[in-house]
Design a protein around this nucleic acid. Structure first.
Length: 102
DNA sequence: CAAGTGACAATAA
DNA sequence: TTTATTGCCACTT
């Protein structure tokens, strides 16, 4: 385990393959915690997206972050679509693209 | 040190 | 089904 919780979050997020998405709750569960908020804070504290694809992390409902994330509410959706993720009514199709820890 | 805030989630109304 | 409230835990002021 990483010394910092944030590092651990980044590591998990980087583990998500293209075309897949993870939820804050899922990552929290992997890190043996129940606080999804911590995960969210970690991604927000993330230095830059080049290192950690935060755009692959969504709400448990398949909803994206409040909007001001990633330089545009549409930005994330476009990125995910480019990776092969499908959207339903503006939400990520978790039933199809939810990443499962191996 | 205490209170407030927040890229969340679950439950109640 | 949507909206409101509560809980969890860390970070900031």
């Amino acid at each position: 385990m990483a010394e910092n919780f944030f590092e651990c979050v980044y590591a998990v997020v980087r583990r998500i393959p293209p075309g897949k998405v993870a939820t804050y709750k899922l990552i929290a569960d992997i890190l043996d915690t129940r606080d999804a908020r911590r995960v969210g804070h970690a991604l927000h504290a993330n230095p830059d997206g080049s290192r950690t694809p935060c755009h692959r992390v969504v709400f448990s409902d398949g909803r994206l972050a409040p909007g001001y994330a990633f330089g545009g509410p549409n930005g994330q959706r476009r990125k995910l679509e480019l990776e092969g993720v499908t959207f339903i009514d503006g939400n990520v199709d978790l039933s199809t693209h939810l990443w499962q820890p191996t």
